[in-house]
């Protein structure tokens, strides 16, 4: 009996990877999915935090895609390993702090490792939803062989949606997959994918070509660069990544910044960090919980308290009672006049 060849698919949760898997399933190929969690994935996080997102559908798109496809999904935590990709990208960054090409190479190389570990179970090639010309940095005609070569995947990397525009891969040459039934999509036009989605009966899929990584977001990238600058080192931990997604960030002095909750949902989320960070909150009025990241000099306490008062319901009051809590010390209570809008300087906003 002929060997049943199996593929592992990189599943982002977007339309392209969904379609790439279905195209192979149509040829009788058994597929399992793999999804990498870098810490910068947009998935869910802020949706779960902010009040105004409470009604948004809370679903992990990669899990949703796997369920639609009827495949197993392996979600892999690559937070630590990903630091080197972000900090030292061989191919540089995109418009923001997004190392898209290095990221793709990294993820395919992780899939290569997975295939090696699972070869005995019949897995011998990798598929992605890449389309030539789809992304300006990572999905171009010139980058397709770079990803295949530098990841170590070489000819076991198949892109079903644009395979006909690329040299034949091992699964095609060996006859595991019928090349004629693959596609020749190219460019940023999404119509062919949408037509294919319709043919397969996929509706309600995640926003096509939408960003799934915070690093492609300018505001987020600016906050990350500010964090590194403020600390004098480009290191980061998981909590740093999370806190960059939450709140209003103001840096009145290079040594410290304030992370000010924008609603009750964010205040509740920041509550979990009270023991780790100096935190400031109004007592006399409702107001946002604020964390202090860095070393706030004593002479800055009144400025910081004035800012926090400004963003609470006591903004127009003559005085607001503010509590400043430093972990391991007795909380301090101070009376402060909220800063006016003009006194909160534009350049403080990160």
């Amino acid at each position: 009996m002929a060997k049943q060849h199996k593929a592992v698919a990189l599943i982002s949760g977007g339309l392209d990877s969904l379609l790439a898997v279905r195209v192979l399933q149509e040829q009788g190929i058994e597929v399992e999915g793999i999804n990498f969690y870098t810490g910068f994935c947009v998935e869910g996080h802020t949706h779960a935090i902010r009040n105004h997102d409470k009604d948004k559908k809370k679903r992990n798109n990669a899990l949703w895609a796997a369920e639609q496809l009827g495949i197993k999904l392996h979600i892999v935590d690559v937070i630590e390993e990903y630091k080197d990709v972000l900090l030292n990208p061989k191919h540089g960054y995109g418009a923001n702090m997004n190392p898209c090409l290095d990221c793709k190479i990294f993820m395919v190389s992780k899939a290569v490792e997975w295939v090696k570990e699972n070869h005995e179970n019949g897995f011998d090639f990798i598929i992605t939803g890449e389309v030539i010309g789809q992304r300006p940095m990572s999905q171009r005609k010139e980058t397709m062989p770079i990803v295949a070569n530098e990841s170590g995947a070489e000819d076991i990397l198949l892109r079903p949606l644009c395979a006909k525009n690329l040299p034949a891969t091992k699964p095609e040459l060996e006859g595991w997959v019928d090349r004629e039934k693959l596609f020749d999509f190219s460019g940023r036009n999404r119509k062919p994918q949408m037509a294919l989605a319709k043919k397969y009966g996929f509706t309600d899929y995640a926003s096509p070509a939408g960003g799934c990584c915070f690093l492609t977001d300018k505001n987020y990238s600016d906050k990350l660069v500010d964090l590194w600058k403020g600390r004098g080192t480009r290191e980061y931990e998981m909590d740093d990544i999370m806190l960059l997604k939450v709140g209003r960030h103001l840096r009145p002095k290079p040594e410290y910044k304030l992370i000010i909750a924008r609603d009750a949902g964010e205040s509740k989320f920041l509550e979990g960090y009270r023991k780790q960070f100096t935190n400031i909150q109004a007592l006399s009025h409702n107001g946002p919980l604020t964390l202090v990241d860095g070393n706030m000099p004593d002479e800055e306490i009144e400025i910081a308290a004035g800012i926090v008062a400004r963003y609470g319901q006591g903004r127009d009051a003559a005085q607001v009672e503010i509590q400043v809590s430093i972990p391991g010390s007795e909380p301090k209570k101070i009376q402060i006049k909220p800063l006016s809008m003009d006194e909160v300087l534009e350049e403080w906003h990160v």
Binding site: K58, L63, E67, K72
Partner: peptide, 17 residues
């Protein structure tokens, strides 16, 4: 504590049998 787990864990449970 993340309410998203209420949809994600059951989805993971279903797809992995």
């Amino acid at each position: 504590t993340d309410p998203g787990a209420l949809s994600d864990i059951p989805a993971w449970v279903r797809i992995n049998g």
